[in-house]
């Protein structure tokens, strides 16, 4: 009944079971590892990984035209449909374009904010500024998209109201509204890494550059930007890949615009293999982007 204690530990009879178990485990690191690792690993494999792989292989299955049921005969037709139809290439380009625009806008807005927080604001108010940038992350995603619906609405929206004296209407629904909303949603994900990166940048480097005669712009371009670059790349991982996967924002403020995630969503009930074939595109783009980023070493700073 009692397991033999491993060499080196001796447990007297009559000690509590917990202690005996503990002694037994202490000599068996592989058993402890298995006990720790098995529940989460099995969970992730069973609930997620297996299905993910299955989903992606579904792209190579065909669908019964009458019942919409997936039949397991291998075919390349879905992938061929996606690759040969210029509409999907355009949608992919549009999606990457939106993600790139969102990333660029986030970067442009985030750098001066982060620089102010890290270098100009007095040290005691930094925590408050970080909190002010972070708080909206806790406000509901949908509520923020809803807020932007109110902002961009043509005619009665807030932006339209601000621009009315100039005789201009608001942006209305469309790609522009999508870019604005996504920029708003993911901005904190860019500000924070850049702030953390700039905080590590020694003031003396900036001062030295000024002493050597460089103007503010030159110092920024040749000293600050190269040193902040890994943090910007780290932030861009969030802004870029989060933008690639979004379809709710596009549904609410995108008007007629179609991005990849919307096409996946629209097709998955009727034709899962085709939806899977489309879904492979953002997965590949994300993986490629991560691979490129990995080479810059930016991920080590997260």
């Amino acid at each position: 009944m009692t397991a033999l204690p491993p060499a080196g530990t001796s447990v007297a009879p009559g000690v509590p079971a917990g202690r005996r178990l503990s002694a037994w485990l202490s000599g068996r690191p592989r058993v402890r590892l298995a006990a720790l690792l098995a529940p989460p690993a099995i969970w992730l494999t069973l609930v997620y990984l297996a299905a993910l792989l299955a989903l992606l292989t579904t792209a190579f299955f065909s669908v019964d035209e009458f019942t919409n049921a997936v039949t397991r005969t291998l075919t390349l037709s879905n992938v061929r449909d996606v690759v040969s139809d210029p509409a999907y290439l355009r949608a992919s380009a549009r999606t990457v374009g939106v993600a790139a625009a969102v990333t660029a806008l986030c970067t442009v807005i985030a750098i001066p904010m982060a620089f102010f927080m890290a270098k100009v604001a007095p040290a005691r108010s930094r925590g408050l500024l970080v909190a002010l940038v972070l708080t909206p992350l806790w406000a509901s995603y949908l509520v923020k998209v809803y807020a932007w619906q109110a902002m961009v609405q043509p005619g009665s929206g807030v932006i339209a109201w601000v621009l009315r004296p100039l005789g201009v209407d608001g942006p209305g629904y469309g790609l522009m509204a999508v870019v604005l909303t996504l920029t708003y949603l993911w901005l904190p994900y860019m500000v924070l890494p850049v702030y953390a990166g700039l905080e590590r940048l020694p003031d003396s480097l900036v001062d030295a550059s000024a002493d050597l005669g460089a103007g503010p712009w030159r110092t920024f371009r040749n000293v600050v930007l190269p040193l902040a670059y890994p943090s910007i790349v780290a932030g861009s991982v969030f802004t870029f890949s989060l933008s690639l996967g979004d379809y709710i924002t596009v549904q609410i403020v995108g008007g007629k615009a179609q991005l990849l995630a919307n096409i996946v969503f629209a097709n998955y009930a009727a034709n899962l293999p085709f939806a899977a074939a489309i879904a492979i595109i953002p997965v590949l783009i994300t993986v490629a982007y991560l691979a490129v980023v990995r080479r810059t070493g930016a991920l080590d700073n997260l």
Binding site: L55, L244, G245, Y247, A261, V264, A276, A279
Partner: peptide, 8 residues
């Protein structure tokens, strides 16, 4: 991974 992929 993109939200829609995880969801599906």
């Amino acid at each position: 991974l993109p939200g829609i992929v995880t969801a599906l």
